[in-house]
């Protein structure tokens, strides 16, 4: 019973942890490139905000999956 709980919690942690790391890595690259682009072309700010936000979906999906694992949905 306890082992099952530990494994469930571990799976949920992986489900959110790995996408969080991937998101952080992707945002660091896109953010740096976006800052460079904005320095040259400030009119592209809306596009850059969208591009920086796109990897965020990974961690959100990870959060949803982790919740499903934890709450047995």
């Amino acid at each position: 019973m306890n082992l099952e709980k530990v494994l469930t919690a571990f799976a949920a942690a992986l489900a959110i942890g790995l996408p969080a790391l991937a998101t952080a890595w992707a945002q660091s690259k896109i953010g740096a490139a976006g800052a460079g682009t904005l320095a040259e072309k400030p009119e592209l700010s809306a596009t850059i905000i969208v591009l920086v936000a796109i990897p965020e979906t990974m961690v959100i999906l990870g959060f949803v999956v982790a919740s499903m694992i934890l709450f047995g949905v």
Binding site: K29, A32, G34, G36, T37, E40
Partner: peptide, 14 residues
């Protein structure tokens, strides 16, 4: 200095 991606983006623009 700045991250490589930052400089590359600036060079692309310039």
């Amino acid at each position: 200095g700045y991250p490589t991606e930052y400089l590359l983006a600036r060079i692309h623009g310039r």
